[in-house]
């Protein structure tokens, strides 16, 4: 099976007043067509930056990027801004993390939803609005006609999230980045949204990158998982395999930190002792070393290389779980 999206050796640095901030470091990741890939990690581990960089959405003079991104046979990193733009909507689309800030506060839902249709698919205004109404109904928004005329601040958080999903799927994308589509919502709404995404994915034959804090969400909604830590993908495996046979001490710590009451959805990542390393000052060794219970001298000296098990399971650790220490 060929990869729909393949990211090779991608690094993203931000120039900040405190120095260069390495948000993403040498990430390699492949999203096979027709699959759903979860991306988990603590807050600040670089999930959002990685997704936005993959789509080429990071702008501003303080961004430095390197690496290649190939989507559906197009090498995005070698294309002009306009060429990449043509792939948005029907190629790639994104659901943003925070529905409060990702909708334009001064424009009506109808215009925000229909403009993608008009610009990308060349629909007429009337057609686009009619289609927008259908899309709102598709994401189960009651009273769609009225919502089209509302401003974002007049909608609840769950409604806004649905609107965002509607905008993202409007042009029937092949790949949908869903950046924590449920974090801002309460548990029942969360479950509804995830259910909705599952159905849409089947109906529209989309691939998806699902970013989340929530290992429960990963377990029920993804085929593969990438675990991110301090800007790196530290483990990558099929979801079932990862839960059954994890190699990274960090992933283990993540899982252990979940309160054991209920292993299903709604279990957010609890605290792992210690904090993420300062992103402007990465030390020499393994980034997880200060918090890792298996850490040894080598971990503090040398940065672990990416290793690959014969079955394709990837991880970045000198002393992986399940090997003689």
């Amino acid at each position: 099976m060929s990869a729909l999206l393949s990211v090779k050796n991608m690094s993203i640095n931000f120039d900040t007043p405190r120095g260069s901030l390495e948000a993403v470091r040498g990430v390699d990741i492949e999203i096979p067509a027709g699959t759903s890939v979860g991306v988990v990690g603590e807050s600040g581990s670089g999930k959002t930056v990685m997704c936005r960089a993959a789509m080429g959405l990071l702008q501003g003079s303080n961004v430095k990027r390197s690496g290649t991104v190939i989507f559906d046979g197009h090498e995005l990193t070698a294309m002009s801004k306009e060429e990449v733009r043509n792939l948005f909507g029907s190629g790639m689309a994104m659901i943003f993390q925070d529905p409060m800030t990702a909708l334009n506060p001064v424009r009506r839902i109808g215009s925000q939803l229909s403009e993608g249709l008009r610009v990308r698919l060349g629909m007429s205004k009337a057609d686009a609005l009619a289609r927008s109404k259908e899309l709102l109904e598709l994401v189960r928004i009651p009273n769609a006609a009225a919502v089209l005329k509302s401003f974002p601040y007049q909608l609840s958080g769950g409604m806004r999230q649905r609107v965002m999903i509607a905008i993202a799927i409007a042009c029937n994308p092949k790949l949908l980045f869903a950046d924590e589509p449920t974090t801002a919502l309460d548990v029942t709404v969360q479950a509804q949204i995830l259910q909705l995404l599952r159905e849409l994915r089947e109906d529209l034959k989309m691939s998806m990158v699902l970013v989340t804090h929530d290992l429960g969400v990963v377990a029920g909604n993804t085929d593969y998982v990438a675990v991110m830590y301090a800007g790196e993908v530290v483990e990558y495996a099929p979801t079932k395999k990862l839960f059954a046979d994890m190699r990274m001490p960090y992933t283990e710590a993540l899982l252990e930190s979940i309160p054991k009451v209920d292993h299903k959805s709604g279990t957010r990542l609890a605290m792992i002792a210690g904090r993420l390393p300062d992103p402007t000052d990465r030390g020499a060794g393994c980034s997880f070393a200060p918090r890792c219970k298996y850490a040894q001298e080598k971990c503090r000296q040398e940065h672990p290389e990416l290793k690959k098990d014969p079955d394709g399971h990837l991880y970045r650790c000198w002393f992986p779980i399940g090997e003689a220490k």
């Binding site: 702008q59 801004k81 948005f88 909507g89 943003f96 800030t101 990702a102 334009n104 001064v106 965002m164």
Partner: peptide, 26 residues
């Protein structure tokens, strides 16, 4: 710097459309 600008970009809108329609008005 707002998210809704990145969001507008992710819809595949042109820079000038984003500037005038999404940024100028607010």
């Amino acid at each position: 710097r707002e998210d809704y600008v990145t969001m507008a970009a992710s819809k595949g809108l042109s820079d000038s459309r984003i500037l005038w329609r999404h940024v100028f008005r607010p």
